[in-house]
């Protein structure tokens, strides 16, 4: 009984994780410029994958340790790649959406150069 409940909970977590990933995909399509798209892509996929991992962990408790490691790796690598990409995108001066209100980094590097 308990095991069946845990299974159900795991499947629900899996479902919620997929919903977040879907939202990330939607954000990727709808957001106006690169930086906003990076935001949408990184946050949602990180949480979505973490939820998926915990869901699978509930479905198959034997795999828990390895799933935990995958989650840790993703927590460290995902924001790092997002940051490196954002830095590169800013350096090559990609067009930002006209909605952008302020860009302190461009101001500062403009002064330096």
């Amino acid at each position: 009984m308990i095991a069946a409940l845990l299974d159900l909970l795991g499947a629900l977590l899996l479902l919620v994780g997929s919903v977040f990933m879907l939202l990330g995909g939607l954000g990727l399509v709808r957001m106006p410029d690169v930086f906003n798209r990076i935001q949408a892509g990184t946050k949602t996929t990180t949480l979505g994958t973490l939820l998926t991992l915990s869901g699978v962990g509930l479905l198959q408790p034997d795999w828990a340790l390895k799933l935990l490691l995958i989650g840790l790796f993703i927590l460290f690598t995902n924001p790092l790649s997002a940051q490196v990409l954002a830095r590169a995108a800013h350096r090559i001066g990609l067009r930002k959406t006209p909605l952008t209100r302020v860009d302190r980094l461009a101001e500062d590097t403009g002064e330096d150069a």
């Binding site: 460290f76 690598t77 790092l80 940051q83 490196v84 350096r91």
Partner: peptide
């Protein structure tokens, strides 16, 4: 070449052993 940012340098020191 443009040097890597501080975060990538730190991150690589963290991740390469792993």
């Amino acid at each position: 070449p443009v040097p890597a940012g501080e975060l990538l340098a730190t991150g690589s020191r963290l991740l390469v052993p792993l």
